Simulated scan of single mutants.
Amino acid sequence: MILKTFLLFVVTALAEIVGCYLPYLWLKKGGSVWLLLPAALSLALFAWLLSLHPNAAGRVYAAYGGVYIFVALGWLWLVDGIRPSAWDIVGVMVAIAGMMIIMFAPR
């Protein structure tokens, strides 16, 4: 269950990042206005993916933030070509620990 939840959060984060990155390319990098169509679809996918978690929405949103940080720093490295610092890695570990506590603590 932990791996399934984490992987669902990763896919959700990718959908959100793509949905925000494409308009950035249009606005800041001179990309085509047609980038907005897949961006909108990606953000709709993001919202749908968040709805697949069985926990309360607020808890899911809070925990998702930790995985989003992990994926965003991966994007920083793989897409933007900027290697995360040691402090970035420490921050990701803290965020993932927070996600695990929020999602998997006994209730």
Rank of each mutant, 00 (worst) to 15 (best):
N55D: 13
I101D: 02
V92M: 09
L35Y: 15
L3C: 01
T12H: 03
Y68Q: 08
W48T: 06
A47V: 14
W77R: 02
S51Q: 08
F46S: 04
I17V: 14
S51I: 04
S85R: 09
L52C: 03
V60D: 06
F46D: 11
V71H: 05
I102F: 04
A47C: 11
A56D: 14
F70D: 02
A97I: 07
W77C: 04
A47G: 04
V60W: 04
V79H: 05
G58L: 05
M93T: 10
L49P: 01
M103P: 00
K4C: 01
A63R: 03
F46K: 02
A105L: 09
A15N: 05
G19N: 10
P106Y: 05
V18M: 12
A105W: 14
M1R: 09
L7Y: 08
G81Q: 10
N55E: 15
A72C: 00
Y21K: 07
K4Y: 07
I2L: 13
A44Y: 12
G81H: 10
G81D: 11
I102R: 02
L43E: 07
C20A: 15
F70T: 09
A13H: 02
R59G: 01
M93L: 15
A44S: 11
Y24I: 12
L76R: 08
P38W: 09
P106V: 12
F9H: 10
V94W: 05
P23S: 13
M99L: 10
W77S: 08
L41M: 07
S32N: 14
L35C: 10
V67K: 01
F46L: 03
W48D: 00
R59Q: 14
L3G: 00
A56Y: 00
V10H: 05
G30H: 11
R107M: 02
V94C: 11
K29C: 11
D88W: 07
P106R: 15
C20V: 14
A13G: 04
S51Y: 04
T12A: 06
A63Y: 02
F9L: 06
V79W: 06
D88L: 05
L8S: 09
I2V: 14
L36F: 08
F70K: 00
M1N: 08
T5F: 12
F70I: 03
A57H: 02
F6H: 09
G19Q: 11
I69M: 14
L50I: 04
L3V: 08
G31R: 12
I17F: 08
K28R: 14
W34I: 06
A62K: 03
L7W: 13
L3T: 11
A13Y: 04
L8N: 12
Y24G: 01
Y61F: 10
M1L: 09
L7F: 15
P38A: 12
M1A: 14
I69D: 00
A40M: 15
I2D: 05
H53K: 01
F70L: 15
A97P: 00
W48N: 00
V11M: 08
R83N: 03
V94D: 05
A72W: 00
A105E: 12
V33L: 15
E16A: 06
L7Q: 09
L22T: 09
R83V: 14
T5N: 08
